[in-house]
């Protein structure tokens, strides 16, 4: 099967999103607020890693791509690379991203493009991720004063990273901008039900975040990659 350059670009974008978010969620293991959540976050991280492996394999060798690219060559959204922060940050990051990913895969599954097969399988996984994030957002937003405060901070802090999700991706076969109204409606709805204020800050523009797809990342991403790639790079050519 020949994969066009365009498809490769899109596969990298989606694959890097999944890989990087999976890695971040993996950082939770052994640190989750309750044992049941170790298992839940682990499930989500494993689903995403599975998606990443399929997508990266469409673009080349999964390990070469994951372990041997420099920071500027990664195409993931800045949202997914944001550090875990507290549990509220992680949940809001999940809410923003999984809502987008669910809408995206739902659409891709209905196309005849190269991502239809993957999307048809992944959309079911992501539906669960979205549900998990929504359920937690409701509980944290409408739980205690402390949980409400923390979650509101997280909603606002991560808001600026959400505009980038709807920028065009070469080779994707659809314009992500079409997903934006549904995303806004859904996220606003969840935040309102949780008693959280919908952030009003900027989501797009040269001064906001929004260049992960072009290989411009945030400071913590370099450290994340250093940790992720160190062992693999220390043994060039070795098999594991």
């Amino acid at each position: 099967m020949t994969t066009t350059t365009h498809t490769r670009t899109a596969a990298l974008a989606l694959g890097d999103d999944a890989l990087v978010l999976s890695h971040r969620l993996g950082e939770w293991m052994g640190h989750a607020p309750v044992l049941e959540e170790e298992v839940a976050l682990g499930n989500i991280a494993l689903d995403l890693l599975g998606q990443a492996r399929i997508l990266l394999s469409m673009a080349g060798d999964e390990d070469e791509l994951a372990y041997l690219r420099e920071e500027r060559a990664f195409r993931n959204l800045q949202l997914v690379e944001q550090p875990n922060g507290d549990f509220a940050h992680t949940i809001v990051r999940q809410l923003y991203f999984s809502t987008y990913q669910h809408l995206l895969y739902g659409r891709l599954a209905a196309t005849e493009g190269p991502f239809a097969g993957l999307a048809a399988k992944a959309v079911k996984e992501v539906a669960y991720h979205r549900d998990h994030a929504e359920q937690w957002t409701l509980r944290l937003g409408d739980g205690t004063e402390e949980s409400h405060g923390r979650t509101q901070v997280a909603c606002t802090a991560l808001w600026r990273f959400t505009g980038e999700m709807f920028r065009p991706v070469d080779g994707l076969g659809l314009d992500p901008a079409e997903l934006e109204p549904a995303w806004l409606e859904s996220v606003r709805g969840v935040l309102k039900r949780a008693g959280l204020a919908v952030p009003e800050g900027p989501r797009t523009g040269a001064w906001s975040a929004g260049a992960g797809r072009e290989g411009l990342h945030t400071e913590s991403f370099g450290r994340m990659l250093a940790e992720m790639q160190h062992l693999h790079r220390s043994h060039p050519g070795a098999s594991w």
Partner: peptide, 20 residues
Amino acid sequence: SLHAPDAEFALRNARDLYTR
């Protein structure tokens, strides 16, 4: 058995724990 704050989460936790 498992612990959960409410029925919704009990279902979700059960899915994660007992049907991995």
